[in-house]
Design a protein around this nucleic acid. Structure first.
Lengths: 347, 347
DNA sequence: TTGAAAGCGTTACCAT
DNA sequence: ATGGTAACGCTTTCAA
């Protein structure tokens, strides 16, 4: 039991200094691990700090330092034409939060729609030291704005001109190619494709653009007959699109999907048409491992390592802020095929 | 094109004052929407602010105010004996972030393990105005500590003594009861139960404790034969536990699960034993709507409204901080049955 | 090795 | 209605 506790919240560095019989400057030095302090003094002051339960006022430190040790992830849940909210893609958030926490940075999450002003204010009001931007479009006003101001940020995704920008992204084009390659190797030659809506592609939304490019490349590369449907990430839409695809190409033996959660719609549609996975229809989809394993049958995927992408984006941002980045860091993750139960050789 | 832009980041209220020909005090008044300012002055100064692109320094404001407008969600991803990371339960985070954003609060996410010191430092270093605590145990040192210091917080979950505390929680006991009631009404009388491990229950983890209480109550209330298995949220464990349950009670016709993601393990086990859902085995589980609909067949559930719980917890916290709470607010959400495809009358 | 004091950008009190 | 200024708690010169 301490004799009395004047709620340590109100303690300042001056209280510590007085109690230890030194100046505030000395206390400050000790708090910041400077070396030019006598060992005896250091020990004594640290003891006082401990006893008093003193903790420095973060806002005051930040005001002085002009930095915040706060990083934010900009994750537009709504707007940008996205579906209401994809419960399976929040792994980005957790990965980013973990990375920040491990490096002793604070981590904020911004889900609200941004305006030019609100974006700038994050930096100009000194609320964050840097940002991780998601939902990148090939032409993206947020990127242009931040670049123009030279504010530090990292993208999950990439734009058409990434000069001097750092990013981490999945190679969606190669991912789509790889999915088709896998199926072709299994002997499939009639393969359907489900991808994001044409609208999203025209808006320049990265995954939509690049997955489509991969599809065109696959068509040009492999001797396959194919048809596609482009719908947004709504299960019901995917269901109906798949039905209509099956009507157009009744003898297809495999499907590639660049969706994640809507894959359920696809599976339901196959079921409704009496197709069994993988016996009478193989399915390859792009999604995180943790989700792929939840399906029955488990899904052969091109892995979407969203947790790691969030994690690495923050690590990259920290390197940038701490001056460890001499050149921009650009990571295009090569696709990784994870063969599970949803693909089989064509019969 | 502005004549020159001295990167607005370095602008201070003094620059605005000078440019507008008024004092900093006046500018400050205008920024804070005080009423005792001549309309003409206000208009003129606001124009200057706009032109200069001035934005107040958040850290300086916070230092002055002693408050941060920052709220945090404490979401221990690891530790506390939880499984590595449940990809389906991140909806709490998104709900909380959205609620904070809508009310113009900043939102931080803390996933790292807490120590007594790190928890206190959030308040004492003035990093947050208040917290939302998750993973509550019936006896919880974090709750005791914060209560003792009278620091504002809201729980998602509740402890054994919630005097003066605000929380929102699902009524897990009633939820379990309701699941059994539904099955009994369908004519089932041999019902298996899968719940969280005994260890978690002994640790006092809320959902484990209350779901178990609900099970005991169901056994006492309904004329059923039952057996249970208690395992943690690992799919493989759930799979094996279900197999062993089916061995013990081969003629059971229904299963209740208080897991979410591990339900997949259960479904796989039923499949392995040649049971079809719902024809030869009904399944009721506790999980968020968005997930239940992804399964094939879709799952009859007791809804776990995690997004809303996160959202409401933050709203509650804001009411508390803004002094709109005269008494503690305690919400025990009554369970809601959502009948989908995984339950059917017993044959 | 230590201390005194200026200053970070803001708000609020006290004058006028 | 407006302005001057102290203070918020800290770090970092500059001197000793």
């Amino acid at each position: 039991m301490t004799s009395f506790s004047p709620d340590s919240k109100d303690l300042t560095i001056a209280d510590v200094a007085k109690a230890a019989g030194v100046s505030v400057a000395t206390v400050s030095r000790i708090l910041n691990g400077k070396q030019d302090v006598a060992k005896a003094t250091r020990v004594r002051v640290q003891k006082v700090i401990e006893e008093l339960g003193y903790m420095p006022h973060a806002q005051a430190q930040r005001l002085r330092a002009g930095r915040t040790r706060n990083l934010a992830l900009v994750f537009p849940i709504k707007g940008h034409g996205t579906s209401p909210y994809n419960p399976l893609q929040t792994a980005f958030i957790v990965g980013a939060a973990e990375a920040a926490g491990e490096k002793e940075y604070y981590f904020s999450l911004h889900t609200r729609p941004l305006t030019e002003r609100s974006l700038l204010s994050l930096y100009q009001s000194v609320q964050v030291d840097g940002l991780v931007l998601m939902q990148i479009h090939t032409s993206d006003w947020r990127v242009d704005l931040l670049r123009q101001h030279s504010y530090p940020f990292v993208m999950i995704g990439h734009t058409s001109d990434n000069t001097d920008l750092s990013y981490i992204d999945l190679d969606f084009e190669a991912a789509t190619m790889l999915a088709f390659e896998h199926l072709v190797q299994l002997g499939h030659s009639k393969i359907g494709f489900l991808t994001l809506s044409a609208q999203r592609r025209q808006q320049g939304f990265g995954p939509a653009v690049h997955a489509w490019a991969g599809y065109e490349k696959a068509l040009a590369t492999y001797p396959i007959i194919s048809a596609y449907r482009a719908v947004d990430t709504i299960t019901l839409e995917a269901y109906e699109a798949t039905l209509s695809l099956l009507d157009e190409l009744p003898d297809l033996t495999a499907l590639v999907s660049s969706h994640d959660v809507t894959t359920v719609g696809i599976l339901r549609a196959l079921h409704a048409r009496g197709r069994r996975v993988p016996e009478t229809c193989s399915v390859v989809t792009l999604m995180p491992e943790s989700i792929a394993e939840l399906s029955i049958p488990s899904l052969t995927t091109i892995d979407f390592p969203s947790y790691n992408m969030g994690y690495q984006a923050i690590e990259m941002l920290i390197r940038m802020l701490e001056g460890q980045l001499t050149a921009p860091e650009q990571i295009l993750i090569p696709p990784r095929l994870a063969i599970r139960e949803s693909t089989a050789p064509v019969e």
